[in-house]
Design a protein around this nucleic acid. Sequence first.
RNA 1: GCGCCCGUAGCUCAGCUGGAUAGAGUGUCGCCCUCCGAAGGCGAAGGUCGCAGGUUCGAAUCCUGCCGGGCGCGCCA
Length: 583
Amino acid sequence: MNVFKEMKREVQGALERLQEAGRLPADADFARLSVEPPRDPAHGDMATNAAMLLAKPAGLKPRALAEAIVAELTRESAWIEGAEIAGPGFINLRLKAEVWRRVAAEILRAGAAYGDGDAGGGRPALVEYVSANPTGPLHIGHARGAVVGDVLARLLSKAGYAVTKEYWINDAGAQIETLADSAYLRYREALGEEIGAIPDGLYPGDYLIPVGEALKAEHGDALLSMEEAARRAIVRDKSIAMMMDLIKGTLADLGVVQDVFTSEREIVASGKIEAALSYLDEQGLIYVGVLDPPKGKTPDDWEERPQTLFKATEFGDDVDRPIKKSDGSWTYFATDIAYHREKYTRGFTHMIDVLGADHGGYMKRLQAVVKAVSGGEASLTVKLCQMVRLMDRGQPVKMSKRAGSFVTLQDLIDAVGRDVVRFYLLTRKNDAPMDFDLTAVKEQSRDNMVFYVHYAHARCHSVFRQAREAGIEPSVSALQDADLTLLDAPEELALMKRLAEWPRQVEAAAEAEEPHRIAYYLYEAASDFHALWTKGKEDVTLRFIQADDAARTMARLALVEALRTVIASGLDVFGVTPVDELH
RNA sequence: GCGCCCGUAGCUCAGCUGGAUAGAGUGUCGCCCUCCGAAGGCGAAGGUCGCAGGUUCGAAUCCUGCCGGGCGCGCCA
């Protein structure tokens, strides 16, 4: 049950009845109608702008129209207790306490499924994220995209989309040849050869040593005498496979498991580039032309030459984009065209790419591609993740590959734990830069959202433990049977109202594609709970456990369980495991 | 030069896609532990929402132009 949706339906119903009665014009537009909780709780539980919106078309003063709406609204509503007209024409509604208790009861019944929505209507959505080059381990720069993408997928899934989580493997191109060369060097090293310093231009990392050893174990010294092309294929495939295993291992430790891994190499080999381009050609979107040099930053070796171009400008991009290099091979952009066409032909019209901020310049052209290859049917949103600065006690952690203090994502997970990494990276909008302070993220204080939310969950369990010691067993059935009408304190009602917002928060966060909203909601819910808990210290009658009143105690335990359920549900969206106890 | 993102309390950030007197945390100041975890809570002070226009019943939010910061800008992936 989404109270807010139900109320909007009621208000809309009232407006339609007024329409039928001829008191509102038949063509009145309700698109901008809002029924939302007001910022200030003194304004009631729900406020609507209906009167202000429709005053002009109705030819009435907002307050006069508001009175008519209120009369219609309160006539037969099961939920509305009262309505006031305020300010420029707001209608403030107060709902019966019964409404909130019903929500609490529903939470106890639905458990983790509370908050699940149907905004997605089962439609497929594809979230592509991480997609790091398989040339080495993931580092911190990849962490944010991995978490944001993963949680976006979980969020959309909770909101009713059929989500596919995808990784695009850049296993073609120059960097992969470099990887193969680097691995071959390690292979020779494994055979006992003295290789000295790793030459410039090759990957120096230790992580390739196991690749060399694996090649030795499988092939002995046979590769040395093998013809170059055949050898290169073997070394390359082995390197890519082992790098992907390394990456998947780290992602698994982060709790990220993707459904589909699409290989660039396979897309290239399958002829899908030619197919996609010929499709675009049929649409008249491919032509040969000459581009102007980039303004203000002409490369030294710039030479004007005719190129094969995609008409990206037709879809809002700034310039048309080349799809062939000067040597006749495809540009990376050409494979992007084929890949996004591939996504569309697999049935996805709702696509999300999670990319690093350094790919900002690619956003428009990718969106242009998606429009073009789908005949305008599909759309792509690009979530750009800004930099994460790794800090310790307020000081930047120096990272230099050369000095060997290169921090991998695996190191980070091992150092602070996957739940902390996940949650913390979601406490900011993805497009705002953030600091990740190794010490601060583990601090146990209120300014640490991660801790504060976990604490609330643990505290719920603490209450249950205390109840059991007092001889009260908060079993599922006992909680479901509790008499919630005994929850009548203003603080208790306020908490129930907060819990009633959860489905709405899920839907809003999913629609806006902003996982961080969940973090802030959980923080506020935790705050409400901690406040209520502490009030029980001063006012004994507010304590959850009332030794001489078993019924009231059970009602309050039910409220605690409802809160716990919502927090656990939010943490589940984040892929974070709730804790029953803090250490 | 062009494009994208950002500018909100001293500091770090929210602000529910246009709503009412702009909110948290932190820091400063003042309170609350014989009591379900003080790892917490309550209160005070703190703002020309970068600047200037515009759109309308109403703007931190949308549009335009400036100012300031970050990222990017053919043949790299």
